[in-house]
Nucleic acid binder design. Structure first.
Lengths: 232, 232
DNA sequence: CAGAAGGCTTGATCTAGATCAAGCCGAGCT
DNA sequence: AGCTCGGCTTGATCTAGATCAAGCCTTCTG
């Protein structure tokens, strides 16, 4: 891998604390690659040869059974995916495809396991990351099982609003059909859901959202840190 | 904690490989307790003071939001729960209650984190366990999102059959209302689902199940190791 | 500029499963 | 034995969301 990439990667939580020699040794086998949208990166059931880290873009994790499929999670920078499979040398449980143009680091799983055993700080970082992945999945599952589609959309808008700086107006950063998929609903129902939120002061023009009555929307959405807060 | 408990706990994957001194040090702060059924052990949002290990019985993990609640997972012996919260010193995302009389080890979270940093084998075991928890949740989510309730029941019966030795007849080890909850359906629908499986040669008498046409049931259920196999 | 294509919206229908409302039946008790 | 209580079943209805089927509008292309 070209050395120019190092500093950016080294700065990630996962690698920041480890010994330089171990980092170098990890990087020797790793490479960074740019993928176009809609590329299938891995398929479920395959052996877990590489740990993946999303540097930019976004990746959809999905699963298939009996001709049905469902998206399980969306990975945004900067975080890893299929860490659990890598750690346990187990086959992938999910498939992954890029949603948009994405930059991804691939690190051979064997190297990750080796360095894990010799670098205490790396071990700590791995386990923290893994715990975070676990908690993200749990949060997503709570969102899905406890809320209606209207409530999910309302809470998504509040989260997105915060990410965009907190102002009353902001833009969606996905096209709507992708948003629908991320929220676990069809494009048709997303369209209807947007209409349903008009009652609470939400107006939509293309990808531009404005919230005229913050309090009312929050009273409806009932955001909860144990579901909506990504940091904890 | 009474020393008599040690060997049984020491034999668990989580503790088997660690240095004796570290194990002793963990056990000094730990204790084993028997709980009656339906006791709420922890509540979501609380700080994660203890790592829990289920030795016998079973524990229901569930979540609540806006007066709704849903069960997220059922923990059977022998495994841990809320490991992720313990590792990250983060609040619990789920509540836990005993389903039946259960024996549970409680280990102070702070001790787990301390020993993690000094015992390489313990670190390895922790991360393996955590990865397994992660994968279990993913499997449960796939089961729920990709299958109808009839399919979930059919696959559950096949798994239970295997656990019971693989014979054509076996017993459920839960009462039906509990099974319904574990499968994410209402008791009413479970009842109807059992009727629906008669077509595939399943007959039910109380908690006793017999499968007259194994091949037909499997053709319907389409069991898949990436969902139904607990070992991988 | 015209045409096509793809995403968005809207309405109509369908479906899995939940909920509501009785009955049923076996176990334990007086 | 007769009663009661709790879990199970059964049927009827309800609902969130999916699916199907158009039309619409913007953007891209020849």
């Amino acid at each position: 891998m070209p050395e120019a990439q190092y500093p950016e990667i080294r700065a990630l939580n996962l690698f920041a604390g480890m010994a330089e020699a171990n980092f170098q040794s990890l990087m020797r086998g790793a490479y960074v690659q740019n993928f176009p949208p809609q590329i299938e990166l891995i398929g479920e059931g395959e052996p877990s040869d590489f740990l993946h880290v999303v540097l930019s873009g976004s990746v959809d994790l999905f699963s298939t059974w009996n001709r049905r499929d469902t998206n399980m999670a969306t990975v945004r920078p900067i975080s890893t995916f299929i860490l659990a499979a890598t750690i346990n040398s187990a086959p992938y449980l999910m498939s992954a495809r890029t949603l948009e143009k994405s930059r991804i680091v691939l690190i051979p799983s064997q190297d990750v396991r080796t360095i894990f055993d010799v670098d205490r700080n790396f071990a700590r970082a791995i386990v923290t990351e893994l715990a975070q992945c676990y908690r993200s999945v749990i949060k997503a599952q709570k969102d899905l099982k406890l809320r209606t589609s209207l409530e999910r959309l309302a809470n998504y808008l509040l989260r997105q609003q915060r990410r965009a700086g907190g102002g009353a107006a902001f833009d969606l950063d996905f096209e709507k059909r992708r948003l629908a998929s991320m929220l676990g609903m069809t494009p048709e129902n997303l369209s209807r859901a947007f209409k349903g939120l008009q009652t609470y002061g939400v107006s939509v023009e293309g990808t531009h959202i404005s919230i005229s009555d913050q309090v009312d929307l929050e009273r409806f959405a009932k955001p909860n840190p144990l579901i909506d807060d990504f940091s904890t």
